[in-house]
Design a protein around this nucleic acid. Structure first.
Length: 475
RNA sequence: GGGGCCGUGGGGUAGCCUGGUAUAUCCUUUCGGCUUUGGGAGCCGGAGACCCGAGUUCAAAUCUCGGCGGCCCCA
């Protein structure tokens, strides 16, 4: 068994998802996939971090999967955005339902009628909750594991309510900081981009998205933050009484991250040999491979056990691979799974009280004294590895970026991501989309250091006031 | 929305056009055994498949129709 080269990203991705046992794609419904135990452990490790961040100032809640049609249709812009991809429950047993029930495509319309009951006065604000749930969208395009799904299994959605537009805007900024922390933790580089007004979340005042770049040059939206203003509050009657006794509409935000974060983790860090995972989220953090020569297998086994005990004491999730495979086969096997640290112990190391160490992201091997391996040493290794992964990912993304200076430069984008100066007018935006056959993701909220633009010119279409915009083929 | 292609063991495939071999090909996987172990070892033996339904026919993996499932291209 071997993987296709990552140069053929689409095929590589398809294969690694299965071979590394992230998901079983054989479930007999389009767009629905099964989490394998290994994949689910990875998911849980990643979401543990996301929960930890959310728990700092949000309460976790759970709202129902089913939303009555009457609620879903209240916000007209919102339903227009989702109408074509809603799954409907139309029957209870054999009886048609009086009011159809939608499988939530997202939970605004499930939550906000309840928010109207929960929020009475300014003392109830701010309200900040989140849930991690599945959502359903009837995708008609190509579905792809973790990327385009009919059942999103792991949608972390946070919803907040505030006294004013300005307070909600502060929350938007906090949410962006939280998401940055999350993706920094995963060593995934991102661009924070304000979506065009005509492409924002249905019902929002504005939308800010996190986009990353996959190795094939297509961008992947890996998080969104929406300022909802009082749009939904007006629809669902979410009012509070302020200190003066006046009733006012709340201003809301919502922001979400789905299992696309796992897709980015796999796609960006992986290589021709398989997954490359940060130490903190890897389901298996280390593997010990004994090299048992004839006559020496007992001492090698003993030394391996000793190291295993030590790793146990340090609280590391590891595997001692004493199977019958040859060492080389074991290297490939655990590399496929992205195990960050590999220890090899053979007769030579038994003699010297050492162990051969190598890290998943580099070819190098070196020897270390077993005695000297400690929590501090391991966490230093882990953070050095994360830094290398981050650097490598940024290098990859820099290579995908192009900086056309005029409209002609947009015609041959190929698989690149274009950073251009563009005004905020819809005509100019749609014009560059048409010329480039790519999507205008929007305007950079802040310029990452690895985007090599010193100063902003005027709009490359109309010559008006420009800001840095990003154009790309996207997933 | 429009067009095209495909469905054979757990995975990848040959066979299909031109229906018929007595046991459906090869690789991988998996189980048992021997031997081995510093980057995917070898040998021996075993397991495992024609998507579903209808039709044509003496005979269907192969032809026709329908269903289900998947893939690709264009807008």
């Amino acid at each position: 068994m071997s993987l296709p080269s990552k140069d053929n990203f689409s095929e590589w991705y398809h294969e690694i998802i299965q071979q590394a046992e992230i998901m079983d794609i054989r479930y007999p419904v389009k767009g629905l996939y099964v989490w394998y135990p290994f994949g689910f452990r990875l998911r849980n490790n990643v979401y543990k971090k996301l929960r930890e961040i959310m728990d700092r100032e949000h309460d976790e809640v759970y709202f129902p999967t089913l939303i009555p049609e009457t609620e879903l249709r209240k916000e007209s812009e919102h339903i227009r955005g989702f109408e074509n991809e809603v799954y409907w429950v139309t029957h209870g047993g054999n009886d048609p339902l009086d009011v159809k029930l939608a499988l939530r495509p997202t939970s605004e319309t499930a939550m906000y009628p309840m928010f109207a009951l929960w929020i009475r006065s300014h003392a109830d604000l701010p309200l900040k909750v989140y849930q991690i749930v599945n959502t359903f969208r009837y995708e008609t395009k190509h579905t792809r594991p973790l990327i385009r799904l009919r059942e999103i299994t792991s949608f972390k959605e946070a919803h907040t309510a505030h006294k004013s537009f300005e307070e909600a805007e502060i929350q938007v900024k906090k949410a962006i900081e939280y998401y940055k922390e999350f993706y920094d933790f995963l060593a995934i580089p991102y661009m924070v981009i304000r979506r065009p007004d005509w492409d924002k979340f249905p019902g929002a005042a504005y939308t800010i998205a996190f986009d990353t770049i996959m190795p094939d040059g297509r961008t992947l939206q890996i998080g969104t933050v929406h300022h909802l203003a009082d749009n939904f509050a007006k629809t669902f009657g979410i009012l509070y009484e302020d200190v003066g006794g006046e009733h006012r509409y709340v201003h809301q935000t919502c922001y979400g991250i789905s299992e696309r974060c796992i897709a980015a983790l796999i796609g960006i860090h992986g290589d021709d040999n398989g997954l490359v995972l940060p130490f903190e989220v890897s389901p298996i953090q280390a593997v010990i491979i004994p090299i048992p020569y004839k006559g020496k297998d007992e001492v090698v086994r003993e030394a391996s056990k000793k190291l295993a005990n030590k790793l146990s004491d340090l609280g590391i999730k590891f595997v001692l691979d004493e199977s019958e495979d040859r060492p080389g086969a074991k290297y490939y096997k655990w590399e496929l799974k992205g195990v960050p640290i590999r220890f090899e112990i053979g007769p030579k190391e038994v003699e010297s009280g050492e162990v051969v160490v190598s890290f998943r992201d580099e070819k190098r091997k070196f020897k270390a004294k077993i005695e000297e391996i400690s929590s501090e040493v391991i966490s230093r290794w882990a953070s050095e590895m994360r830094e290398r992964m981050r650097k490598k990912a940024i290098e990859m993304m820099k290579q995908k970026l192009v900086y056309p200076k005029d409209v002609d430069g947009l015609k041959e984008l190929e698989r690149n991501v274009a950073v251009i100066s563009l005004c905020r007018n819809r005509e100019c935006g749609e014009y560059v989309e048409e010329i480039s056959k790519a999507r205008l993701l929007g305007w950079l909220e802040e310029t990452p250091w690895w985007v090599e633009v010193k100063e902003v010119d005027s709009c490359i279409v109309c010559g008006g006031k420009g800001s840095l915009a990003v154009l790309a083929k996207s997933y």
